[in-house]
Amino acid sequence: MDLRIFTEPQQGATYDQLLAVARCAEDAGYDAFFRSDHYLKMGQVTGLPGPTDAWITLGALARETSRIRLGTLMTAATFRLPGPLAISVAQVDAMSGGRVELGIGTGWYEAEHTAYGISFPPLRERFDRLEEQLTIITGLWETPLGSTFDFAGKYYSVTDSPALPKPAQDPRPPIMLGGLGPKRTPALAARFADEFNLPFASLEDSAAQFDRVSAACAAIDRDPATVCYSAALIVCCGRNQEEVNRRAAAIGREPDELRANGLAGTPAEIVDKIGRYAEIGAERIYLQVMDLTDLDHLELIAAEVMPQV
Protein backbone atom coordinates (compact mmCIF):
# COMPACT_ATOMS: atom_id res chain seq x y z
CA MET A 1 0.00 0.00 0.00
CA ASP A 2 1.42 3.39 -1.02
CA LEU A 3 0.95 6.14 1.55
CA ARG A 4 0.87 9.71 0.27
CA ILE A 5 0.58 13.03 2.07
CA PHE A 6 -2.30 15.29 1.05
CA THR A 7 -2.56 18.92 2.19
CA GLU A 8 -5.28 21.59 2.04
CA PRO A 9 -3.35 24.89 1.89
CA GLN A 10 -6.46 27.03 1.31
CA GLN A 11 -7.25 26.42 4.99
CA GLY A 12 -4.16 28.44 5.91
CA ALA A 13 -0.57 27.72 4.90
CA THR A 14 2.48 29.50 3.61
CA TYR A 15 4.81 28.14 0.97
CA ASP A 16 7.47 27.61 3.64
CA GLN A 17 5.08 25.42 5.64
CA LEU A 18 4.26 23.36 2.56
CA LEU A 19 7.96 23.00 1.80
CA ALA A 20 8.62 21.76 5.34
CA VAL A 21 5.85 19.16 5.03
CA ALA A 22 7.04 18.02 1.58
CA ARG A 23 10.63 17.63 2.78
CA CYS A 24 9.52 15.80 5.91
CA ALA A 25 7.35 13.47 3.79
CA GLU A 26 10.27 12.78 1.46
CA ASP A 27 12.69 12.10 4.29
CA ALA A 28 10.19 9.85 6.09
CA GLY A 29 9.66 7.65 3.03
CA TYR A 30 6.20 8.64 1.82
CA ASP A 31 5.47 8.02 -1.85
CA ALA A 32 4.15 11.49 -2.74
CA PHE A 33 3.17 14.98 -1.63
CA PHE A 34 -0.13 16.19 -3.04
CA ARG A 35 -2.03 19.39 -2.44
CA SER A 36 -5.54 20.60 -3.13
CA ASP A 37 -6.17 23.21 -5.81
CA HIS A 38 -8.56 25.64 -4.14
CA TYR A 39 -8.71 29.43 -3.98
CA LEU A 40 -10.97 29.85 -0.94
CA LYS A 41 -11.03 28.50 2.60
CA MET A 42 -13.81 26.26 3.84
CA GLY A 43 -15.46 26.41 7.24
CA GLN A 44 -14.60 28.73 10.12
CA VAL A 45 -10.81 28.88 9.76
CA THR A 46 -9.25 32.24 8.85
CA GLY A 47 -7.43 30.83 5.84
CA LEU A 48 -4.55 33.24 6.44
CA PRO A 49 -2.33 34.19 4.73
CA GLY A 50 -4.63 33.25 1.83
CA PRO A 51 -4.53 30.77 -1.04
CA THR A 52 -1.41 29.66 -2.84
CA ASP A 53 -1.45 28.53 -6.46
CA ALA A 54 -1.08 24.77 -6.80
CA TRP A 55 1.13 24.62 -9.86
CA ILE A 56 3.40 27.47 -8.77
CA THR A 57 3.82 25.61 -5.46
CA LEU A 58 4.59 22.32 -7.19
CA GLY A 59 7.06 23.97 -9.55
CA ALA A 60 9.00 25.29 -6.58
CA LEU A 61 8.82 21.97 -4.73
CA ALA A 62 10.06 20.23 -7.86
CA ARG A 63 13.39 22.01 -7.39
CA GLU A 64 13.53 21.60 -3.61
CA THR A 65 12.86 17.85 -3.42
CA SER A 66 14.52 14.96 -5.19
CA ARG A 67 12.47 11.75 -4.89
CA ILE A 68 8.90 12.31 -3.80
CA ARG A 69 6.17 12.49 -6.42
CA LEU A 70 4.11 15.69 -6.66
CA GLY A 71 0.54 16.35 -7.74
CA THR A 72 -2.90 17.89 -7.30
CA LEU A 73 -6.00 16.43 -5.73
CA MET A 74 -7.72 17.93 -7.70
CA THR A 75 -7.07 20.77 -10.16
CA ALA A 76 -10.41 22.21 -11.29
CA ALA A 77 -10.93 22.27 -15.04
CA THR A 78 -12.75 25.58 -14.56
CA PHE A 79 -9.55 27.25 -13.32
CA ARG A 80 -7.39 26.97 -16.43
CA LEU A 81 -7.50 26.61 -20.19
CA PRO A 82 -6.41 23.15 -21.37
CA GLY A 83 -3.46 24.26 -23.52
CA PRO A 84 -1.80 26.44 -20.85
CA LEU A 85 -2.47 23.76 -18.22
CA ALA A 86 -0.76 21.14 -20.40
CA ILE A 87 2.25 23.49 -20.70
CA SER A 88 2.40 24.17 -16.95
CA VAL A 89 2.20 20.51 -15.95
CA ALA A 90 4.75 19.48 -18.60
CA GLN A 91 7.14 22.17 -17.39
CA VAL A 92 6.82 21.15 -13.73
CA ASP A 93 7.29 17.53 -14.80
CA ALA A 94 10.56 18.49 -16.49
CA MET A 95 11.61 20.59 -13.49
CA SER A 96 11.07 17.60 -11.21
CA GLY A 97 12.77 15.04 -13.40
CA GLY A 98 9.51 13.26 -14.17
CA ARG A 99 7.76 13.16 -10.77
CA VAL A 100 4.46 14.96 -11.51
CA GLU A 101 0.90 13.64 -11.59
CA LEU A 102 -2.21 15.56 -12.67
CA GLY A 103 -5.37 15.11 -10.65
CA ILE A 104 -8.17 16.98 -12.40
CA GLY A 105 -11.92 17.31 -11.94
CA THR A 106 -14.91 19.41 -12.89
CA GLY A 107 -14.61 21.86 -10.00
CA TRP A 108 -17.37 21.96 -7.40
CA TYR A 109 -16.87 24.86 -4.96
CA GLU A 110 -18.95 27.69 -6.42
CA ALA A 111 -17.95 30.26 -3.79
CA GLU A 112 -14.28 30.20 -4.79
CA HIS A 113 -15.28 30.87 -8.38
CA THR A 114 -17.41 33.88 -7.55
CA ALA A 115 -14.76 35.16 -5.09
CA TYR A 116 -12.08 35.29 -7.80
CA GLY A 117 -14.01 36.00 -10.99
CA ILE A 118 -14.03 32.46 -12.42
CA SER A 119 -16.97 31.22 -14.46
CA PHE A 120 -18.91 28.37 -12.83
CA PRO A 121 -21.14 26.66 -15.44
CA PRO A 122 -23.84 24.09 -14.65
CA LEU A 123 -22.65 20.57 -13.82
CA ARG A 124 -23.39 19.06 -17.24
CA GLU A 125 -21.34 21.75 -18.96
CA ARG A 126 -18.51 21.31 -16.45
CA PHE A 127 -18.37 17.61 -17.32
CA ASP A 128 -18.40 18.43 -21.03
CA ARG A 129 -15.56 20.90 -20.54
CA LEU A 130 -13.58 18.39 -18.49
CA GLU A 131 -13.93 15.77 -21.22
CA GLU A 132 -12.65 18.22 -23.83
CA GLN A 133 -9.80 19.31 -21.56
CA LEU A 134 -8.71 15.71 -21.02
CA THR A 135 -8.80 15.07 -24.76
CA ILE A 136 -6.69 18.15 -25.47
CA ILE A 137 -4.18 17.71 -22.63
CA THR A 138 -3.50 14.05 -23.41
CA GLY A 139 -3.49 14.78 -27.13
CA LEU A 140 -0.90 17.53 -26.77
CA TRP A 141 1.37 15.39 -24.59
CA GLU A 142 1.12 12.29 -26.77
CA THR A 143 1.57 13.98 -30.15
CA PRO A 144 4.95 12.87 -31.61
CA LEU A 145 7.70 15.46 -31.90
CA GLY A 146 7.55 17.15 -35.27
CA SER A 147 3.80 16.54 -35.63
CA THR A 148 0.95 18.91 -34.81
CA PHE A 149 -2.27 18.49 -32.86
CA ASP A 150 -5.78 19.67 -33.78
CA PHE A 151 -9.05 19.44 -31.93
CA ALA A 152 -12.44 21.03 -32.60
CA GLY A 153 -14.78 20.94 -29.62
CA LYS A 154 -17.82 22.79 -28.40
CA TYR A 155 -15.87 24.75 -25.77
CA TYR A 156 -12.21 24.50 -26.82
CA SER A 157 -10.50 24.26 -30.19
CA VAL A 158 -6.83 23.70 -30.96
CA THR A 159 -5.42 24.34 -34.42
CA ASP A 160 -2.01 23.36 -35.80
CA SER A 161 -0.47 23.16 -32.32
CA PRO A 162 3.20 22.09 -32.13
CA ALA A 163 2.15 20.33 -28.91
CA LEU A 164 5.14 21.55 -26.94
CA PRO A 165 6.72 21.28 -24.43
CA LYS A 166 6.78 17.55 -23.87
CA PRO A 167 6.69 16.29 -20.28
CA ALA A 168 9.64 14.32 -18.95
CA GLN A 169 7.50 11.19 -18.47
CA ASP A 170 6.78 9.18 -21.60
CA PRO A 171 4.17 9.20 -22.96
CA ARG A 172 2.81 11.57 -20.29
CA PRO A 173 2.37 12.17 -16.55
CA PRO A 174 -0.23 9.97 -14.84
CA ILE A 175 -3.74 11.39 -14.77
CA MET A 176 -6.04 10.97 -11.78
CA LEU A 177 -9.81 11.34 -11.86
CA GLY A 178 -12.22 10.75 -9.02
CA GLY A 179 -15.57 11.31 -7.40
CA LEU A 180 -18.84 9.53 -6.70
CA GLY A 181 -20.72 10.37 -9.91
CA PRO A 182 -22.39 7.11 -11.02
CA LYS A 183 -22.18 7.43 -14.83
CA ARG A 184 -19.95 10.04 -16.44
CA THR A 185 -17.25 9.85 -13.79
CA PRO A 186 -16.57 6.11 -14.30
CA ALA A 187 -16.81 6.52 -18.08
CA LEU A 188 -14.23 9.33 -18.13
CA ALA A 189 -11.99 7.36 -15.77
CA ALA A 190 -12.09 4.36 -18.06
CA ARG A 191 -11.04 6.51 -21.03
CA PHE A 192 -8.43 8.77 -19.45
CA ALA A 193 -7.39 7.86 -15.91
CA ASP A 194 -4.30 6.05 -14.72
CA GLU A 195 -5.65 6.36 -11.18
CA PHE A 196 -9.15 6.65 -9.75
CA ASN A 197 -9.51 8.31 -6.36
CA LEU A 198 -12.38 8.58 -3.91
CA PRO A 199 -12.07 11.27 -1.24
CA PHE A 200 -13.65 10.85 2.19
CA ALA A 201 -15.94 7.98 1.16
CA SER A 202 -17.07 5.03 3.24
CA LEU A 203 -15.86 1.51 2.54
CA GLU A 204 -19.24 0.62 1.08
CA ASP A 205 -19.43 3.65 -1.23
CA SER A 206 -15.81 3.18 -2.28
CA ALA A 207 -16.32 -0.46 -3.17
CA ALA A 208 -19.41 0.36 -5.23
CA GLN A 209 -17.65 3.13 -7.16
CA PHE A 210 -14.54 1.04 -7.78
CA ASP A 211 -16.85 -1.59 -9.25
CA ARG A 212 -18.48 1.01 -11.52
CA VAL A 213 -15.08 2.11 -12.81
CA SER A 214 -14.07 -1.50 -13.42
CA ALA A 215 -17.29 -2.09 -15.34
CA ALA A 216 -16.75 1.07 -17.42
CA CYS A 217 -13.26 -0.18 -18.29
CA ALA A 218 -14.60 -3.58 -19.34
CA ALA A 219 -17.23 -1.86 -21.50
CA ILE A 220 -14.49 -0.31 -23.66
CA ASP A 221 -12.24 -3.39 -23.57
CA ARG A 222 -9.77 -1.88 -21.13
CA ASP A 223 -8.30 -4.12 -18.45
CA PRO A 224 -9.67 -2.75 -15.13
CA ALA A 225 -6.39 -3.77 -13.49
CA THR A 226 -4.61 -1.01 -15.45
CA VAL A 227 -6.33 1.57 -13.20
CA CYS A 228 -4.85 2.26 -9.76
CA TYR A 229 -7.64 2.63 -7.19
CA SER A 230 -7.07 4.95 -4.24
CA ALA A 231 -8.77 6.67 -1.32
CA ALA A 232 -8.20 10.00 0.42
CA LEU A 233 -8.95 10.12 4.15
CA ILE A 234 -8.24 12.55 6.96
CA VAL A 235 -5.68 11.14 9.38
CA CYS A 236 -5.27 11.66 13.12
CA CYS A 237 -2.79 9.26 14.65
CA GLY A 238 -1.52 9.13 18.22
CA ARG A 239 0.64 6.80 20.26
CA ASN A 240 -2.16 6.73 22.83
CA GLN A 241 -5.64 8.17 23.31
CA GLU A 242 -4.32 11.34 24.91
CA GLU A 243 -2.25 12.09 21.83
CA VAL A 244 -5.17 11.29 19.53
CA ASN A 245 -7.35 13.71 21.53
CA ARG A 246 -4.71 16.44 21.32
CA ARG A 247 -4.33 16.12 17.56
CA ALA A 248 -8.09 16.02 17.00
CA ALA A 249 -8.57 19.16 19.12
CA ALA A 250 -5.84 20.96 17.15
CA ILE A 251 -7.93 20.63 13.97
CA GLY A 252 -11.31 21.19 15.62
CA ARG A 253 -12.60 17.63 15.28
CA GLU A 254 -13.81 14.92 17.65
CA PRO A 255 -11.84 11.66 17.90
CA ASP A 256 -14.89 9.40 17.55
CA GLU A 257 -16.10 11.29 14.48
CA LEU A 258 -12.64 11.00 12.93
CA ARG A 259 -12.58 7.27 13.66
CA ALA A 260 -15.91 6.88 11.88
CA ASN A 261 -15.13 9.06 8.86
CA GLY A 262 -11.37 8.85 8.47
CA LEU A 263 -8.23 7.22 9.79
CA ALA A 264 -7.96 7.98 13.49
CA GLY A 265 -6.61 6.31 16.58
CA THR A 266 -3.48 4.45 17.46
CA PRO A 267 -1.18 3.07 14.74
CA ALA A 268 -2.81 -0.35 15.20
CA GLU A 269 -6.29 1.08 14.61
CA ILE A 270 -5.13 2.90 11.48
CA VAL A 271 -3.36 -0.18 10.11
CA ASP A 272 -6.58 -2.16 10.58
CA LYS A 273 -8.72 0.36 8.71
CA ILE A 274 -6.22 0.73 5.88
CA GLY A 275 -6.40 -3.05 5.58
CA ARG A 276 -10.14 -2.85 5.07
CA TYR A 277 -9.64 -0.39 2.19
CA ALA A 278 -7.04 -2.73 0.72
CA GLU A 279 -9.62 -5.54 0.81
CA ILE A 280 -11.92 -3.59 -1.55
CA GLY A 281 -9.12 -2.87 -4.00
CA ALA A 282 -7.48 0.35 -2.82
CA GLU A 283 -3.77 0.33 -3.62
CA ARG A 284 -2.94 3.81 -2.37
CA ILE A 285 -4.09 6.03 0.50
CA TYR A 286 -3.81 9.82 0.55
CA LEU A 287 -3.46 10.90 4.16
CA GLN A 288 -5.09 14.31 4.57
CA VAL A 289 -3.06 16.16 7.20
CA MET A 290 -4.64 19.36 8.47
CA ASP A 291 -2.12 20.59 11.05
CA LEU A 292 0.87 21.40 8.85
CA THR A 293 3.01 22.43 11.83
CA ASP A 294 2.89 18.95 13.39
CA LEU A 295 5.70 17.16 11.55
CA ASP A 296 5.96 14.60 14.37
CA HIS A 297 2.57 13.34 13.19
CA LEU A 298 4.01 12.44 9.77
CA GLU A 299 7.06 10.83 11.35
CA LEU A 300 4.93 8.74 13.72
CA ILE A 301 2.82 7.35 10.86
CA ALA A 302 5.93 6.65 8.79
CA ALA A 303 7.57 4.81 11.68
CA GLU A 304 4.64 2.81 13.03
CA VAL A 305 2.01 2.53 10.27
CA MET A 306 3.92 2.49 6.97
CA PRO A 307 5.98 -0.67 7.71
CA GLN A 308 2.78 -2.62 8.42
CA VAL A 309 0.91 -1.73 5.24
Rank of each mutant, 00 (worst) to 15 (best):
A163W: 10
D37V: 11
V309L: 14
P165G: 07
I56Y: 08
F149W: 08
R284M: 15
G71W: 13
V89F: 00
G281L: 07
L85K: 02
R184P: 02
F127T: 01
D170T: 15
R23K: 15
T14P: 07
L130H: 02
I118C: 02
D223I: 09
M290R: 15
D223E: 02
G275N: 09
S66H: 09
A115M: 07
Y286D: 09
R99G: 12
V235G: 08
V227D: 01
E254K: 14
R99V: 09
P162H: 11
M306G: 06
D170E: 15
F196V: 12
A249L: 01
A20L: 06
T293E: 09
Q44I: 13
G178V: 08
I280R: 05
A302L: 13
T185Y: 08
L292I: 15
E269R: 00
P186D: 02
K41L: 13
A22E: 01
P182L: 03
A248E: 01
M290G: 11
L40S: 10
T143K: 09
F149Y: 14
A25V: 12
N245R: 12
L130C: 07
L298P: 05
D37I: 04
C236I: 11
H297F: 06
V158L: 15
K183G: 05
L70A: 06
E64M: 13
W141H: 02
E110L: 03
V271K: 10
E125K: 08
P174V: 10
R259Q: 05
A208V: 12
A231R: 10
Q169A: 11
T72W: 02
P307C: 11
F6D: 10
A216L: 07
A13M: 10
L130I: 04
L180D: 06
I220W: 01
A152R: 14
T72K: 00
Y155P: 10
R80I: 12
A278V: 13
A190N: 03
I270H: 02
A77V: 14
Q11L: 13
A190E: 07
G107C: 07
K166I: 11
L263A: 05
D294F: 14
Q10K: 00
L258I: 00
L233D: 00
Y277N: 11
C217V: 07
P255M: 03
G238D: 12
V227F: 06
I5R: 05
R222Y: 03
E304K: 05
